[in-house]
């Protein structure tokens, strides 16, 4: 009974304050979209880093079947060449610059590739044979990349030496900058949302002061009096959060998944499914912001 009563109170409150409720929904929608966009950018950065990014800096790719590089004229790498490269890496002349290194076989390369590009159709057309084996090197000082490059580029069986960090770092710094901007805008919008929710609840409490006055007099508990107002704000904010989640999902699904992955098939994009982990975060964030701001407002403007 009390629940039904509270629900009907919420319904009448939402109806009476419709335009304010709509503005709360829109403001939380926009602010949480920016929060979510920042989250998505970070997820995208992680996706692009792949398996090796945080572990090593330099990769020495070995010749495989179809390699066209000059060092690979003699065909794919032989076990002897691989052995001598391994020995060279362990020799004191090189070993002083590196922390450790790992060999990635074709099979392992395929596995890591599959993980990184799991959202992309490209994964179906790639076989382990097409991927080069490689040595992955963790440098003591990443700045000393040149030494490794010079030592190994000319070795037989080496296709190319790549400093992966340098390739991606620029892009990542742009994306990190973008997510900072998104967080900044989100912070301002969240302040707007909090103030707007507070104003809405204040108006709502004012327009229903007759009811709340009577509720007080007949001995309604604090919860029964306050809950409809708080839930009013929370419901509006949760609707905004749901809209923001839907927008982010749509961006991941239609823009990244269908457009960008066609345009840049060699880049790993996040899938629309991955954005779903943002949904509970956004809803909890929106709901708790609204709950706290309406609770604080009620404390000042609604006597119980």
């Amino acid at each position: 009974m009390r629940l039904a009563f509270i629900l009907s109170e919420i319904g009448s409150g939402l109806r009476r304050n419709l335009s304010m409720v709509v503005s709360v929904i829109l403001v939380t929608f926009v602010s949480l979209t920016f929060v979510g966009a920042a989250g998505m950018l970070q997820m995208q950065i992680n996706q692009m880093k792949g398996y090796w990014y945080d572990k090593v800096q330099v990769a020495i790719f070995l010749c495989s079947e179809g390699s066209t590089a000059a060092g690979c004229a003699s065909g794919p790498v032989t076990p002897e060449q691989q052995e001598s490269l391994n020995a060279l890496l362990e020799s004191p002349a090189v070993a002083q610059y590196i922390n450790d290194f790992q060999f990635e076989s074709k099979e392992e390369a395929y596995q890591h590739f599959k993980d990184q590009f799991s959202n992309s159709p490209i994964v179906d057309s790639v076989t382990p044979d097409q991927l080069p084996a490689s040595f992955r090197i963790n440098m003591k000082d990443p700045e000393k990349y040149q030494i490794i490059s010079e030592t190994f580029s000319s070795q037989p069986g080496v296709e190319t030496v790549i400093d992966q960090r340098q390739l991606l770092e620029r892009l990542f710094s742009v994306m990190n900058g973008a997510s900072l901007v998104a967080v900044g805008i989100a912070a301002v919008m969240i302040v707007c949302a909090i103030l707007l929710i507070a104003t809405t609840i204040r108006l709502s409490a004012f327009s229903r002061r007759r009811e709340t006055g009577i509720m007080r007099l007949v001995g309604a508990s604090k919860t029964v009096i306050q809950l409809p107002f708080i839930l009013e704000g929370v419901i509006a904010a949760v609707i905004g959060a749901a809209l923001a989640s839907a927008t982010l999902w749509a961006v991941a699904h239609f823009f990244l998944g269908e457009y960008m992955s066609q345009q840049y098939p060699d880049t790993a994009f996040i899938s629309s499914g991955q954005t779903l982990i943002l949904v509970p975060a956004l809803i909890i964030l929106g709901g708790s912001l609204a709950g706290i701001s309406s609770l604080l407002t009620l404390r000042r403007y609604l006597r119980v």
């Binding site: 009974m1 009390r2 009563f5 007759r210 009811e211 006055g213 009577i214 509720m215 007949v218 001995g219 309604a220 508990s221 029964v224 009096i225």
Partner: peptide
């Protein structure tokens, strides 16, 4: 101090609803 948008029955019932009396 009656609630203008509620009828007589609902005005009286309101006092019981808010303290959780059953329908």
């Amino acid at each position: 101090r009656l609630l203008p948008q509620k009828n007589v029955f609902a005005n009286v019932a309101f006092a019981m609803q808010v303290i959780g009396k059953s329908r």
